[in-house]
Design a protein around this nucleic acid. Sequence first.
DNA 1: TGTCAATATAATTTCGAAATTGTTATGGAA
DNA 2: TTCCATAACAATTTCGAAATTATATTGACA
Lengths: 241, 241
Amino acid sequence: MTNALINQEPPQGTLAGTVYQAIRRDILTCKLLPGQQLRSDMMKLEYGASISTIREAVARLASEGLVQQLDQRGARVATISESDLRDLLKVRENLESIALRWSIKNGGEQWEAVAIGRFHIFRRSLQRRNPNISYDLDLQAAHEDFHLSLISACDSPRLLAIVKSLYTQSRRYRFMADYGRASDSDVIGEHERIMESAFDRDADRACRLFEEHAAKTVDLALANLTLLQRQFEEQAELERQ
Amino acid sequence: MTNALINQEPPQGTLAGTVYQAIRRDILTCKLLPGQQLRSDMMKLEYGASISTIREAVARLASEGLVQQLDQRGARVATISESDLRDLLKVRENLESIALRWSIKNGGEQWEAVAIGRFHIFRRSLQRRNPNISYDLDLQAAHEDFHLSLISACDSPRLLAIVKSLYTQSRRYRFMADYGRASDSDVIGEHERIMESAFDRDADRACRLFEEHAAKTVDLALANLTLLQRQFEEQAELERQ
DNA sequence: TGTCAATATAATTTCGAAATTGTTATGGAA
DNA sequence: TTCCATAACAATTTCGAAATTATATTGACA
């Protein structure tokens, strides 16, 4: 419900689509670990569909970059690394900055209204967050939805789709490192200032603020990754036996 | 052979991979027309593989943006439009410009050597082109390979992959409009100046020249598209009967 | 003891038929 | 004649088994 803007596919449709979403969710929440082999038999039992159907779902995920397919050697969950994360965030920052600029130029009152609405939901999610839960899915979805709404008026379906997919790929890292909980800094204020600059049509300021915001994310993410990656590798080693 | 840098997959491997490449080629050369339905039976006969195999190949193409999949209503070749072309070229120009900047910063002598080599092949292809052939596949591949080699040192696998896929999507438009034959302008000189600016590490000049080059492409492409699209629609109408 | 080849095992890949779903054609009622 | 429901049709989607290919194990030889 809350992440309607993020999940592009409706629940009705083909079984392959449903399986695709299920596997995708398990990858993004690291129930399926990075590097883990996706064995046909295991998947068949786990997701209750035939091998062919599973195969199609996996093929879709492969094109999304969430799964790596090796010729004649099946598929595995895409691996993670510090260099990959650096690249991902660097590209996302630059592309989203462009999209924000275009969006500020094209956006009208309707765009502002949607962004304000998303901002409100994001703030509410942050307020009622449970400190005991290490990873709040709704909060992350609200965060993404807000950012995407800011660039939604960029009038470029392609750029929007690319940035969306970069957000998707980031989610796995964010889940692991849980770098959403930077509650010491003024998260709401940061976002509010970006939005206000955008509404004032001050693209330079908005992009500068956004890039500063993004830089913080990079630091937070990298700080936690190395430790966690070792953890996951040990777990994967265990499952291999 | 000549487009080794472009076709990422080796010829050996799975049948689905081979079929994927075959369909891809037919889409990019407009043997399969934009908007055309991809019927299972027809595909089965045409490409000599079972429906399941075809299906997997088509799924891969769908993720690449070359095919549109509709729930329970099969798949069709992605449609084309003026707005889509505008978007495509605009995004490509901006993203490639970023990649060029990064590449200029990171590139060493090895990068220069490869770029010079690609430039040489591009120039030779242009020299020996046959004016009777309306569309020279080798020439287009050489052109793409040169541009990609210039940004290959950007040190961002993701951005490189995105730009590559944008080139792939452009190819269909380029095939149709054949806007490669702007022989009146100084094609070689334009490219040479971009390359020299890059080697001088003058990123601003290189990007400016590249953006001017890209702007010409947009004009050429749009000039031919409207007429050709009507043509293709008529042909598609005919096939529907 | 270490290396290599051959076999046995386990995985992926491919296939065509059966089930499901969407589309078109037909017939009746307003 | 037009609209709607029903039936016949054509397409996509799903399945499990057969074929193919990779991996692991065993044994022989240097």
